[in-house]
Simulated scan of single mutants.
Amino acid sequence: MASEFNRILALLRKERGITQKQAAADLGISQAQLSHYEKGIRECSLAFVVQVADYYGVSCDYLLGRSADRSGQTISVADLPETGASTSGSVYRGSVLPTMYKKLIENSLDILYDKLQESKDKQLVIQISQYLMLAVYKVFRRLYDASPKNAVGMFRVGAARWQGNADAAMHVAEAELAAALTGEDGGKDSLDPATLSLSTERLTQDYPRHATSLLNLVKNAEESMRALHPAE
């Protein structure tokens, strides 16, 4: 938990665009002390956690990594906005977990595609969409292939090739996305950097109903990755 506090303490300062010196002065401590807190060299008091929460306008639970939402909200299925999809609710027969994850993903995609629309960059839209479609294709095909009752002839790419080909196509989509974002092909001039302003504060302001989904998706994804390296 301490490492979460260190990371978030530094993140909030950087998102606000202020130096350690300025933040330390505002908080009434030395720059060296704040640096130690941000690096995890020293433990701070509970009173300082509360002071920092007030200073940045976030909750203590967010500062401590207990909540992905700046307000400290702990989400439930009912808290997440409906996506309006025709499959909402009924297909899950009351099961909470798939409904929760479906909402997290769909609400996060709403933010992603809103940003893509702002970017007005055709290559970004194409490559990100290709990558996401391939990811869904891989999951669907695994589910389809798991039942011997499903007809083999549905897919044009054979059983021996589909996984390798899908992985390769996803890697290509990632490479083309990287090229589009870095301007390697000369297309970055049309991309306004402000479009990619994705601070937690900005996301919460611009997407008050959907940001919670995206921030919790990030938290859940990183928890699954960190589980691969429990020592960290």
Rank of each mutant, 00 (worst) to 15 (best):
M100K: 06
A24R: 08
S30Y: 07
L80S: 03
P148N: 05
A53S: 15
S35R: 04
Q51L: 11
D79C: 08
L214T: 10
A135H: 03
H229A: 11
T212Q: 04
M133R: 05
L80I: 12
Q163K: 08
A227H: 10
L191N: 02
A68L: 02
E118Q: 15
D79K: 06
N216R: 06
G153T: 09
A180Q: 02
T19V: 02
A175T: 04
T204W: 00
F155R: 04
K219L: 09
R70Q: 06
T19G: 10
L64Y: 02
D121F: 05
V58E: 01
E174D: 04
E43N: 13
V139K: 08
Y92T: 09
V91K: 12
L228H: 08
F48D: 04
R226W: 08
K138F: 13
K39W: 01
N107S: 04
I105E: 06
Q163R: 04
G40R: 06
E4L: 14
A179S: 12
A180C: 09
A180M: 00
F48A: 03
R7Y: 14
Y62V: 08
Y56A: 06
P98Q: 10
M225L: 15
S147G: 02
L181T: 00
L46H: 09
D145P: 01
S119N: 07
S3H: 14
E82R: 12
G89Y: 08
L104A: 07
Y56C: 12
Q51A: 15
I126K: 09
S224E: 14
A2P: 07
V136W: 01
L177A: 07
L132R: 08
A10G: 01
T182N: 05
Y55K: 12
Y131L: 15
Q130N: 13
E106V: 11
N6T: 12
Q117H: 09
Q163D: 13
A2Y: 12
T74A: 10
G65W: 03
Y144G: 00
A47G: 11
D145T: 00
T195A: 10
